[in-house]
Design a protein around this nucleic acid. Structure first.
Lengths: 197, 197
DNA sequence: CGTATAAAGTGACCGTGCTCACATTACACG
DNA sequence: CGTGTAATGTGAGCACGGTCACTTTATACG
């Protein structure tokens, strides 16, 4: 259980590398699981020993990018308003997700949308939890009145996925349009929280 | 071009009736296009002469329900605040969509989510436009400062689909939980508009 | 009527994501 | 070493949504 363990992680990496090569070039639909499997040197069925679905591969790529983005965000100095910190956090995430932008949309739809159920996509749920915990920490330092209500969390997640959605389709050259959307969405959210006077 | 025209509309109706019988009982995925076609007395391929995709069938059902809901809404007396009117409008829509609630989720995800592109789903776009025009009329009577900005419209649509999303998955008996969500979401939206002093 | 033209219907077929019964491999233990 | 056992790999096969070349039907016109 040593050689095999190494082999497993290597194969997993090879799948992810292959996916990262194919998806951006051909898009999500046009890249078939058979393509990826063949290019990674495994049988079509073996792919599903590593990832439960095609989407899960994309989720894994996104999750890696987000973890890295969070690492960078935490290493940066902060201290602005809550709006500003949330803005900086999401901006860092979008930077990290940039290479995947072209093919993220179909996955965002089914796995990250406010409609997605946790049971249906554990990978999406993991991403969701990690982001919300990060936000929770940011909010906790500003709002001593206790954590936001469940409905407020719903609102936040809806707005967050809304930003991602806009970003994924933003036609402006470097997605600058998303910044305005982010700004307005975040102000609507923070404005709806009970204000600390 | 008389008998056939009648036959076409009749077949279309038969497809929709069949779909309305099958989808609620078996759900969206478990109901196959072949099921519907067979039960409607047509070949598998013929179905796609009437609807370009399986989703389009659901969209057509939803569109019909929404048109009826809007008819009822317009027949009712109004005059509350903007929040209240928007609340009443969406509540009327949700009442109309009630029979379809169980199988609407997958379609909302891909066709109505903020991620959906208009090109990809003309049917979804039609629903979107009709709803937004309705809202535009409500807003126009309250905000003489002119129509909301494009970003504000994006925000509204994000929140609206967020409400639908919550409603589609709301486990509370008659989806009362959705009311609280609607209330908070709408207040966040109206609060983000330039206020008429 | 007969015939030409267009509309509507048909079902075999395709490519897809994913499954599953089986083959193959790698390790643990005597 | 040899052998049993569990993990991993395999690819034929499935069901699905959707397509398309072709047939059938209905209407328009001489």
């Amino acid at each position: 259980m040593r050689i095999t363990a190494e082999a497993k992680v290597a194969t997993r990496r090879r799948i992810l590398e292959t996916a990262m090569d194919r998806f951006p070039r051909a898009g999500f639909e046009a890249t078939t699981t058979r393509d990826i499997a063949a290019a990674a040197g495994i049988a079509a069925g073996t792919l599903f020993n590593y990832f439960p679905s095609k989407e899960a591969i994309v989720m894994a790529l996104a999750a890696e990018a987000l973890v890295e983005a969070h690492r960078q965000f935490e290493g940066q100095p902060r201290g602005g308003s809550l709006d500003e910190d949330l803005f900086a956090l999401i901006a860092a995430e979008l930077r990290g997700l940039r290479p995947h932008r072209g093919y993220l949309r179909p996955v965002l739809e089914t796995a990250l949308s406010p409609l997605a159920r946790a049971e249906a996509s554990p990978e999406g749920e993991a991403i969701r939890v990690e982001h919300l915990e990060m936000v929770g920490r940011l909010i906790a330092t500003r709002l001593p009145g206790g954590p936001p209500s469940p409905v407020a969390w719903n609102l936040y997640w809806t707005l967050y996925t809304g930003v991602l959605a806009f970003w994924a389709c933003d036609p402006s050259p470097h997605q600058e349009g998303t910044l305005a959307v982010m700004d307005q969405y975040l102000r609507a959210f923070v404005g709806s929280l009970p204000q600390p006077e």
